[in-house]
Write a protein that binds this DNA or RNA. Sequence first.
DNA 1: CCTATTTGACCCTG
DNA 2: CAGGGTCAAATAGG
Length: 319
Amino acid sequence: MEPFWVERPSANCSKSRAIRELVDGRDSAIRLETLLRKPSGNNGSLSADELVVKILRSFTESISALSSWENSEVCEDMSPQIGGFGAGCDDQGSEHSGESRKRPGLKDGRGCYKRRKESETRTTFSPTKDDGHAWRKYGQKDILNSKFPRCYFRCTHKHDQGCRATKQVQKIEDDPKMYQITYIGSHTCRKITRAPQMITDSDPWESSYPPSCNNSDTKPLINSQQSFAFCSANDSIKKEEELALVKEDTPTTSSDLTDNLSSFDSILLPELMGFESSDPAAMYLSCVDDSQHSFLDMDPMGRFGFDGEFPFYENVQFS
DNA sequence: CCTATTTGACCCTG
DNA sequence: CAGGGTCAAATAGG
């Protein structure tokens, strides 16, 4: 089978370094985890303390690497090409501008878009498709050599806030319980306003909104319906994706776990690399299963920003 | 009625 | 040309 991710040689130094560090950090965390699970065994490897230090260092390095990377990078949101939402012709326009986007000569103006080329993408693997963001499905496609179709989502706030984030969700053949989620571009939407009809006035959504979209105070709730429960992406939003994916899923495993999940993407979003990292502990917690809570409890670092992925065998990858 | 989803058409990239 | 990504009309659901 194919590797979940492939390293891009073009990745610049900082980025590569960040990735290396993250991978390293993850490895260390895994080792630490095993270490903690069998307290007796030091197995000649590093001690827990050493591992903790190592992990910390990895994250620190990653953060700094990503920071420099970000700084050296043209703000993707500003870049017409980079963050370029697929909307093509006039980007913002798309459906919004209705007929204005239609090309004369083109049948109903379809296909008028530019495929994003260098937009930033991040791939994660998670047992849920929901990441807490409000997504709207805009397409689904059968992919060659893939048992499962790929679903295309864009941020619900694409129009009201011009958010260009999109994501692609596809079940992993080898493990239908897992989804490969590729995030393209990053959320520029801020504090959740309201997705029409999707968010109620009281907007419970907000409270469960992941760190990314709103850099404000709101913290994700720890809601452990399952090991992964995290921001119980509330009902409405959930439902949105839920329904969307359940359908294409149906052939096989359906309803896996809950669909509430920490928004790893958000954690990784470049603009978030600002790391006002909200409640890392919560994030981490959200992703560990019960057996690992002890680890959590003793978490001395409290600064896990990227760890969300650890518990999974996922890979996060920038490209 | 309004909004989201479905789905076939269409374009782009390799 | 094939495969993949996106658009938007049609449809469904509240």
